[in-house]
């Protein structure tokens, strides 16, 4: 499995990568500043043996999380992926909205911490 962090603020990429590693996550971590980067990465790595856990920020310039989720939902990817929404928003509406996508396994508030890392690693478990 690989972990992909998508956030349009470099500081968060740094913070989250740091916190993940600190709390014993051994999977390779990739960071993208743009949603479009994520999409092209998935297209290029679209084989059945690939598994990705995507930590996705909601509000991003260029392409926001809802557009990305809709794109992922509309297409049949061979690779397996799960999405955790990681946002500074505390609005309940958005949490509900994200539940509509079956591959969204969790919705957490920034910043990550030990408990949240354990929680998402548990939820993101691929069979």
């Amino acid at each position: 499995m690989e972990i992909i962090i998508v956030d349009d603020e470099a500081v968060f990429l740094m913070i989250h990568e740091n916190i993940l590693k600190r709390h014993g996550v051994i999977f390779p971590i990739r960071s993208f500043l743009w949603g479009t980067e994520l999409i092209s990465f998935l297209k290029n790595n679209n084989s059945e043996d690939k598994k990705f856990l995507i930590l996705l920020d909601i509000y991003m310039d260029n392409m926001d999380a809802w557009e990305i989720l809709a794109y992922l939902d509309a297409r049949d990817f061979k690779c397996k992926f799960k999405v955790v929404i990681v946002t500074s928003s505390v609005e309940i509406e958005e949490r509900e909205k994200s539940k509509k996508f079956h591959f969204v396994v969790d919705f957490i508030n920034k910043p990550l911490n030990r408990d949240l890392v354990e929680q998402i690693m548990e939820r993101a478990h691929f069979e």
Binding site: R22, S89, V90, P111
Partner: peptide, 13 residues
């Protein structure tokens, strides 16, 4: 929340 989250994360580190 965004800058606040940043501060919280950085302090954690």
């Amino acid at each position: 929340r965004a800058p606040l989250a940043k501060i919280m994360g950085l302090v954690q580190i």
